[in-house]
């Protein structure tokens, strides 16, 4: 019985640790997917002037849940003829900072409104910012992600020791 409780306490704190660490990994995945999307969009716009809806429809099937949510939100804005805002673009997305949101918002606000050359410049602008965000998110995932995962297990073990 004691052993089961011991495992239960350690697992519980472990899960909390992984949960906290998860947001760091999610941020890393989000920026990775956003970068991939930007690269693909740049080549499709530059090479074949592929329509935005076609690009977005393909993208909505790939990526992590936050990235898919972002694309879905943007498509809802277009389809429902809404004015794009921070609230409707980032609805249900909680892992981004205000600065990151602002940069992504500025990009989506002007997406599709320029000629080919200007549109590619806009994509490259966000691409360079996203590279920086991705590097930071990767470092954070490595540093804090692993730290919180391990910390969860250690705290769990400590609590188990104190209890028993």
């Amino acid at each position: 019985m004691k052993a089961i409780l011991l495992i239960l306490i350690i697992s519980m704190f472990g899960v909390i640790g992984f949960g906290v660490a998860g947001s760091y990994f999610e941020r890393k995945r989000f920026f990775f997917n956003l970068l991939e999307f930007l690269k693909q969009t740049k080549s499709l716009v530059g090479f074949s002037s592929t329509k935005l809806t076609e690009i977005l429809n393909k993208q909505s099937y790939y990526g992590d849940k936050h990235f898919k949510r972002l694309i879905k939100n943007y498509m809802s804005v277009l389809n429902d003829n809404l004015n794009i805002s921070l609230d409707n673009l980032f609805y249900d997305i909680t892992i981004l900072t205000n600065e990151e949101k602002q940069d992504i918002f500025s990009f989506f606000k002007g997406l599709g409104m320029y000629d080919q050359t200007t549109q590619i410049k806009q994509i490259e602008l966000l691409e360079s910012k996203c590279k920086h965000y991705f590097e930071t998110a990767s470092e954070d995932a490595k540093k804090y992600g692993e730290l919180y995962s391990k910390l969860g297990l250690i705290v769990g073990a400590f609590v188990a020791l104190v209890v028993f």
Binding site: S49, T50, K51, L111, Y114, Q116, T118
Partner: peptide
């Protein structure tokens, strides 16, 4: 015009 371009002005320039 924006909608007619399928939200892609670059494609109709």
């Amino acid at each position: 015009v924006f909608k007619a371009s399928d939200y892609s002005m670059y494609s109709i320039s």
